[in-house]
Amino acid sequence: MTNPILIAGGGPAGLAASHALSCLGFKSILVEKEDRLGGAPILSGYAKLVPSGEWARDAIGGMVERAMNDPLIDVRLNTTVTSFSGESGRFSAGLSDGSGADTGAAILCTGFTHFDPVNKPEWGFGTFEDVVTTTQVEQMISSGQGVRCPSDQRKPKRVAILLCVGSRDRQIGREWCSKICCTVSANIAMEIREELPDCHVYIYYMDIRTFGLYETKYYWKSQEEFKIKYIKARIAEVTSDGERLIVKGEDTLVKRPITIPFDMVVHAIGMDPNTDNRSISSVFGVTLEPNGYVDQLSVYGTVGATSRPGVFVAGSAKGPETIDDSIAQGHAAAVAALAAANPAAETA
């Protein structure tokens, strides 16, 4: 019988990987550093997910419940992996709770960290209360509180969403596109208009990257049905006149400077590499790619292979990723890990 597979991280990718293994009749150890499973969608209180429109607490919550009740999945909460030695098929892992485990292979599903927009001080986050992040708006919606200006709980009449906050910006060393923020922002914009029909929502963009089928479902729908206005401009700064926020920039299509008042400014924050990636890299002996995500050795050969044989990666640990693709990659990595943990299967 194969040793269990170690899965680090209990978000969508980790939950999917452990479930896939369990479906095939194999055991896994699911190690989660927080006090509950679910990853970013649960821990950050996301509202309705793209593209299903299901609430995160139902969709991801269902995956969590399934894992918690699965006898083949050994869930270890408040735990991290502290050591990892051996080689593919015969690893030995040390956990922060003092226990150890023999494991055939490992899957890193360690996810990402939300970009902290105080690192872009010119856009006012941390200076003005009514400058918030997409995550905060998600929480306003998912908590049932509704979209309100944090300063005085008033309903905003005009909201600006700034895209690419913490993405595609060499000034702060983040050259990647975080992939999901355009779609998420269009989704949030529609949710704001749904709750507050009198509120005008403007999205300031450099490019709109609602890729694939999200084009019609989010970009087009937000314009055609919800009358969201998209303005091609990268905002220079967010200030205040004492009453409202003032957004300054250049409207590139009319080649004119703009200083427009807003009640609320939302930063569409990007996905940073997990802040723990350096220690993850050293514990598991895997290399990171230049941006700081876990390096993927092969794209076409073995799905999710890292620089260390027997250690695999899935989801946003290896770069910005959507929830549904993270889940697919979790499944794929589970199969790859199984093959590595059980070399007999390969030779048979």
Binding site: R256, P257, T259, I260
Partner: peptide
Amino acid sequence: SRVVTDYNE
């Protein structure tokens, strides 16, 4: 000034 200072919705 050419600055656009508000949107007329």
